[in-house]
Structure formats: C-alpha cells, structure tokens
Design a protein around this nucleic acid. Structure first.
Lengths: 221, 221, 221, 221
DNA sequence: CATGAATGAGGATTCATTCAT
DNA sequence: AATGAATGAATCCTCATTCAT
C-alpha cells in the first residue's frame, strides 16, 4: 500500500465520517421532532421546541431540513413499519393454535398502542397537513406490517384450516376490528370514559374473526 | 287581559325573539365554521375565513363564542349523530336476510363516508387540539349511531339466529372492519393508490362477520 | 328631500368618510416611510421603524400595504414631481434676461437639493431594489419637471434667441450639468471634501449653457 | 554566501511568498465580491454568495476582511479609476478636431457605461450604506478620470481655441451633460422606455458644449 | 491556513382579539 | 347587536459570524 492509496483512504474516511455525522444529526432531529410533534399539534409545536428537545440551536434545524413542513414530511415517512415490527416483538407468527395466536397478536398490539397513543394521535392529525402523496407513503409504511398477517392467512387457507377468502381484505378487516377500540378508547376518549376492558374485547374479536356471529345451529348456515 | 299582561307577553316575545335570533346566529356560525374547518386545518383556518363564510364581520363571532378554541369545541360537540343518521337515510334495519341487510348498511356507510371525507379528516385532526373531555363528548356522539346496530344484534341473538356475544363489542368490531378501509383508502391515501374496490370488500366483510374465517369443514370447529 | 334620500346621503357620507380616513392613513404611512427610508437604507429600515415613525402598530402597516416592498414601491411612485415643483417655488419661468433666469433656476435647484440630500440618496439606492417598471415610473415622475424647461427652450428657439436644437436633449443636458455637482458634492462626498462653491459653479454653468466653450474669436466658429 | 544567509533568503522568500499569496487571496475575494455586489444588492448578497463565487469557504472570507461591511468598503475604495481608464481605451486625447474628439470620447463613455450598468447601479446603491469618508474616497477615485479632460481643456484655453473658464467646473459639467442620459436611460429606466438614441444625443451635447444654445445671430451676444 | 457546521440575534409577517363607532 | 380598523404577541426563517477540526 503506497502513499497514494493511503491518502485516498484518508479522504474516504473524512468523507464517510462527515456523512455519518450528518446522518446522525438528521436522526437526532427527527427523533426530537417526533417526540415534540407527538405532544403538541404540528402548528403548536415550534421549531424552537424541536431544537431545544434536540439540544441544538434553532438555525441548525435548517441545515438539515428545508423548513418546518419538510421536517414534518420526513418524520411522517420514516420507516415506521420497522419500528412497529420491533415493537410488536418480532411478531413471529407460529406455533400455538389459532385462538391463542390471534389473541396473542392482539395483546401485543394493545400493549404497543397504549405505549404510543401520542404518536398515533400525531399521525392522525398530521395527515391533514400533508399532500396525498406523502400521506400515501406514510400509510403504505404502516400497512407494510399487515403483509406478515396476510402471509399467515394464505398458509392457513392453503392447509384448508381457513375457508378461501381474500387475504388482503380479511387481514385489514381483522386489523380494523381491533383498531376501532384503540382509536375509540385510547386515542379519542382518553381516560374520561369507562372503556371496554381488553380482556373482554380480545376473545370476542378473536371468536368473531374465527367463526363469525352466525349461530352454529343456524340452519341457514 | 289587561294592558299589563299584554305588555308582559310583548316582553316575553321580545325576549324569546331575541333568544331565537341569537340561536340562529350561533347555528349560522357553527355551520360556517364546520365548512371552513373541514377544508382547512384548524390552525390554517382563520376567524376571518369563518366570518366571511358566515357573511358576518370578524368581531361578530366573538359575540357568540369566547374565542377560536371555543368555536372549535362547539363545532366538535354538535350532535353529529343526528346528521349521520340522517345521512344514513334513516337506516331502518329490517326486512331482508342478514347478508343483504349488512351489505346494504355498509354500502350506505361507504356512500356517506365518501361524501364527507373532508369532515372525517377534520374530525381526526381536530382531536389533537382538544382536551379529553371534549374528545370524549364528540366521540360519544358518533358511537351513538352504533346503538341502533347493537339493538339489531340483540334481536338476532334473542331469536337464536346469532350466537350469544357482547353486542357492544361486536357492533364496534363490525364498524371497525369497514371503517379501516374508509380510513386507509379515502382519508389517508387519497387518490394516489389503487384501492380495494368496495364491491369486493363489502361481501368479504359481510361473510367474515357472519361466518368467520374458519373453514366449515374444519374438524376443530 | 324625503327620508330615503337622507338615508342615501348618510350612506354616502359613511362610505366617503371611510375612504377619506383610509387615504389619510395611507398618506400618513407613506410620509413616515419616506422619512425612515431617507435615513436608513431600505434593508436597514424595519417595518417597526416605519410604524413607530407613523405612530402606529406594526400590523397596521399591513392593512394598507401588502408587504415591505410594496410600501417601497408606493413611496417611489408617489407624484414627486408635484413636490419638486412646489419646492422649486412655482418655478415660473419668465421675465428676466436669460442669464439671470437660468442662474435663478439653478440657485433654487441647489437650495432644494441641499434640503433633500437624504431623499435623493434614498432614491438612488432604492432604484436597485425595484424592477424596471417601477423604476421607469418613478423616473418619469422626476423628468416631468423637465417639461417646463423644455417649453421655455421651445419659446426661445421660436423667437430666434436660441439656435435650433432638440429641446428634450438640451433640457436634460442642462439638468445634468448642474446635477453632477449635487451628486458629486452633496450626495456622494458629503462634508468631507472641499466642494466647488455654487457661487462659482452657477455662473460657469450658465455661461457654458449659453455660449459654449468655444472662444468668440475662434475663426472656426 | 554562507548557509545562514541562504536561510535568511529562504525566510524572506517564505515571508514574501506568504504576503503575495495573501494579497492574491484578497484580490480574488474583492473580484468575487465586486461581481456579486453588482448583481445583487449589498443586503441581498450573502457572504456565502461571495465565498462561492471566489471558490472559497465562508469562513475564509473572515481571514481577510473583518466583516461584511469591511468587505464592501474595500470593494468601494478599490482604484476604480485605473479600471475605468483601461475601459476607456487609453482615452488618449489628441489629434482630431474638437467636434470629432468630443464625440469620440462620449461614444467610448457610452460603450463603457452600457457594459457596466450593473456596476454603476451597485455604486449608486452602495453609497447609502457607507459613511461620508468612504463615499468621498470612492468618488475621488472616479473623478480622477476627469483630470485628463481638465488637462485637455487647459491646453485648448491656452491656445485660445476655448475661452477662459474654470477647467474643473467645465470638465465636470461636460461629464454631467452626458451622464444624465446614462443614469436616466440605462441605470434608472432600463428597457421599459424608448430612450433618446445616442447618435442624436452625442452631436447635440457636443454642439451645446462647444457653442451653447445662444443663436449666433443673437445681437445680445 | 482553510473549512463549514453550528450558532442565535433579528425582522417580516400573520392573525386572534379588542373596542370605538 | 354588528362592525372592522387597530393592535402587538408570536414564530418561522435567514445569515453574519465564530471556532473546533
């Protein structure tokens, strides 16, 4: 290795180091912004709030984001699905019988949702601020999580355990059955309302999902 | 009837008339505010916008609402359920077999939702702005609509057509199965994404609700 | 005069009064802005400065002008020629012999210029800020003053006292001969330089204008 | 020559080299600043603009100039007269008859002015920014050019071709006669106004300068 | 010497709210 | 009761300047 290639390595390192630092700052700001935006509405949160939360000066934000809106867009289109999956605890779907499995998934979902009510609220309110494209991008990220469940459905249908149905629709419907309680009880009503306890909700939802409402004895079946 | 009581009647009329006019003005402003807030975000909509939409001067708004936030609160806690029910076209639940009936309800729901995407978005984003109490009040208004469906469930369970289950939970779950598509496809993603067509979604959801996913041949059943 | 026409008069008065008040405010702000812009550079003068000078709140400025630049444009395109003419003391051009008359005009011009050095500086520096159109408009206002002098030239040419020449060009050239001293000595150099005294400059300029530099004895004449 | 003196020479060279490099950097920055300031107004031009134009980093500017204002001062007090003279093409004043000579000077002046409208505008607007002293210094540099013309006047007066007059005043007046058209038509009005064509202006100005406006037949002469 | 990331003071502008008419 | 002109607090963003590398 001669002096020239050493120099090149050094240049590369400098360059790489710079990029790494910039990426870290960006990440640092995004984390702070997510925290701030989760607590105050976008319009009520000030750049100063974000800067303070990030431990930076106001002006520094603008070295990494064109403006406040741009910052919001970047917060919204971060790969949340990864975070969600992580939060869902790997969410490996396997093993147990369907009833336990589905209940397990829902229980993890509830836990995660409860821990992130602020963020969910932020997402919902921020949607208003941005254009269709960003909204779609953000939402696609979220729906990503659903694909794992679709896979599970496909397998169960293939083995004949589940009847033929559209896995995408059914997967989302399952998600909806559960999400309505999160939205209604946690995101919307807060602590002011006696909610349905999840120990009751989860079995009902699982049963509904597996067997529907129709009575087994129903001749129309 | 002497002159005194005539005077009293007149006073009463004056009083009543005054109150009626005030109520009308209040209603006029609330309607305007709802329209404006549905199109712009709360923070982007100005009092001036609302006043213009209502055909009044800026200052007049403050004769009927303490401040901008108070106006929002009143918009949010208007009896929306009445409007929803009206929009659902009476939503008398009766007659047909369950499959057609449920599909019919969903179809009406889709129609109404599509016609009010702006308002739904407004509701979602406004939730962030207000405190738990107002949020709860607003949401209770919405859930009100659900009671009709709960009633229907109770009847079907009583007749033995549906298996025993918690009507409140199941009612909401049904609502959620459907609402997730409205939220995902209309409110969030806008026109940027090829959505699941509702002609496909509705039968799947109805079937899921009635019979679940489990294969009829499944021995575990 | 019946009650209806009385009402109409009243409405007109209200309307007219409002417009008069608005015009007065506009004028008040323009005066303040002219003063402020004459002392600080456009970019150094703040809206707050202008508002304070006008005895108004910052926000009030924006009720009458779209933004700071718009304020500048309006200051620049005010009918300055009227002010100039007034300042030139009517500038009726008549009576005396040409030498005295021209000297008189120049003397008045010097007086006015000395009293308005700040404004002249402001004009020169502001020109940079605005687009061609506004600049042209502003300058046309100034050149307006020149037309009176052009008229005088035409008359003198007609009587044969002056030789045939283009009155517009010669008028401007005369203005330039004098203005260069104002610009150089007052606007640019300020009090740091021993200037040519105007008692010497004026006769020289008048003589140059009337007879040129060529020696009367020059045979080439 | 021993090793010590060799070292001293080397040190001197180092020193000299350093100074030369510093002077070059200074010059490089001044050139860049002149270009930038000619296109944007002083307040609209940023240090970053200048640095980019000079191919340097922002911070580097501050190694050679105390601050932005200091940079402006140095731009303004560069020896522009040298540049102007160069641009005037040597401007050797000789040979031809007076009419052709003066017309020639004016034609060169027009050409130069047209090529430097941006710079002239910059000068005019920058004058507002700086104190009397700098302004005087800058203007003295410009008037420097006039001395050549004064010399020419003195010679012609001495030969009796021109009548006795103050060469400084007359020189400046001549400059003013011409400059007013440059200022009015190029610097101020831009392309929005039908200007006096210079082919007409120049002969008129020359004639005015040489013979004045008075009719040769005027008995009052 | 040179760099350019970080700083934070400063200013244009908006808009909820008040109050004299 | 209704008006809308006036207010001024609040906030986004720019950019001259500094300083660690």
């Amino acid at each position: 290795m001669n002096i020239h290639s050493l120099f090149e390595v050094w240049v590369e390192n400098r360059q790489a180091r710079k990029e790494r630092l910039a990426a870290e700052r960006t990440e640092q700001i995004l984390r702070a912004a997510t925290r701030v935006f989760s607590q105050k509405d976008f319009h009520e949160a000030t750049i100063h709030d974000v800067a303070r939360e990030a431990g930076l000066a106001d002006g520094t934000i603008y070295l990494y984001f064109r403006n406040k809106r741009d910052l919001l867009l970047n917060v919204l289109t971060r790969p949340y699905s990864a975070l969600l999956l992580a939060a869902l605890g790997g969410a490996e779907i396997s093993g147990e019988d369907d009833r336990s499995l589905l209940a397990d998934i829902l229980r993890r979902g509830v836990t995660m949702a409860l821990a992130n009510v602020d963020t969910i609220r932020f997402f919902m309110s921020a949607m208003q601020e941005v254009d269709d494209q960003v909204r779609a991008e953000a939402f696609r990220n979220l729906f990503q999580v659903g694909t794992i469940f679709e896979e599970y459905l496909r397998e169960r249908i293939a083995t004949g355990a589940f009847r033929p149905c559209d896995p995408v629709i059914v997967s989302r419907a399952f998600f909806g059955m559960f999400m309505i309680f999160i939205l209604g009880q946690e995101v919307m009503m807060g602590k002011n309302v006696a909610p349905m306890p999840y120990e009751k909700v989860i079995p009902e939802v699982v049963e509904l999902f597996l067997t529907g409402v129709t009575s087994p004895k129903d001749p129309a079946r």
